[in-house]
Computed example of a mutant assay.
Amino acid sequence: MTVHAFVDESARNRQFLLCMTLVEPAHLASTRRTLAGLLLRGARELHFKKEKEPRRRQLIDRMGKMFVTTRVYTASCMPKTEEAARQRCLAQAVEDLLGMGARRLVLDTRNERDEHDRRTLQRSLGSLPSKSELTYEHLDSTLEPLLWISDAVAWCFGAGGDWARRSACLVEEHIRL
């Protein structure tokens, strides 16, 4: 079964976290609809950092019932080395996606910093893009609701404690780099 992957990140306490949400094609449309239904009136996206605590609990509990899984990649970093940590995590995520036969990778855009990701993706895929059929793109999170799950899980995982426990049902694997 092929999957589509959606990536967002968080950085806390000298640790970079890259969260990759995996969704089978059969569940893409229904999961997007469910997520869009969680928006408050007038909102264009869910962004966990901006939500109040009771709403965060509600959102992560609802996400835990969706037909998705996530993988969390972590790497130690200092503020000046966050980009390098991100690229290490991304390279490992791409290697894992190739092993799964993934078809699409969507990354939350960071605008001008997307170029760093493109270089890592090109290095990781080399001459494989046509053989792997893995396509990738950067999108604004207002345009792709499935990025919201990665944002929420990365935030919860990084927060630790009860938040990590609440998101644990979504995390199929934690990869330490």
Rank of each mutant, 00 (worst) to 15 (best):
T2Q: 09
H4G: 06
H4Y: 12
V7H: 05
D8K: 03
E9P: 06
N13A: 14
N13L: 12
Q15C: 15
Q15E: 15
L18R: 02
L18A: 03
E24G: 05
L28Q: 06
L28F: 09
S30I: 11
S30R: 14
T31I: 05
T31C: 07
R32T: 06
L35Q: 02
A36E: 13
G37V: 03
G37T: 04
L38W: 07
L38Y: 05
L39C: 13
R41S: 12
R41Y: 10
E45K: 10
L46W: 02
H47M: 08
K49C: 05
R57S: 10
Q58C: 09
M63C: 06
K65W: 09
K65P: 02
K65D: 09
M66S: 02
F67R: 15
T70S: 05
A75I: 00
C77E: 08
P79V: 10
P79A: 09
K80N: 12
K80M: 11
E82P: 01
E82N: 08
E82C: 08
A85L: 00
A85Q: 02
R86Q: 08
Q87M: 14
Q87V: 06
Q87T: 08
C89S: 05
L90F: 11
A91N: 06
Q92W: 07
A93D: 04
A93Q: 03
E95W: 11
D96K: 10
L97I: 10
M100F: 14
M100S: 12
M100A: 12
M100N: 08
A102P: 01
A102T: 03
L105P: 02
L105R: 00
L105E: 01
L107A: 09
T109W: 06
T109N: 07
E112F: 15
R113A: 12
D114V: 10
E115L: 14
E115V: 13
H116L: 14
H116A: 15
R118F: 14
T120L: 09
R123I: 13
G126K: 06
G126Q: 05
S127L: 14
L128G: 00
P129Q: 05
K131F: 12
S132K: 00
S132P: 00
Y136F: 15
H138C: 11
T142C: 12
L143T: 13
E144I: 02
P145I: 03
L146W: 04
L147P: 00
L147Y: 04
L147V: 11
I149R: 03
D151W: 02
A154K: 01
W155K: 00
W155C: 01
F157K: 00
F157Y: 07
G158N: 07
A159M: 15
A159L: 14
D162R: 15
W163C: 00
R166E: 01
C169K: 09
L170M: 07
E172W: 11
E172D: 15
H174W: 11
L177A: 13
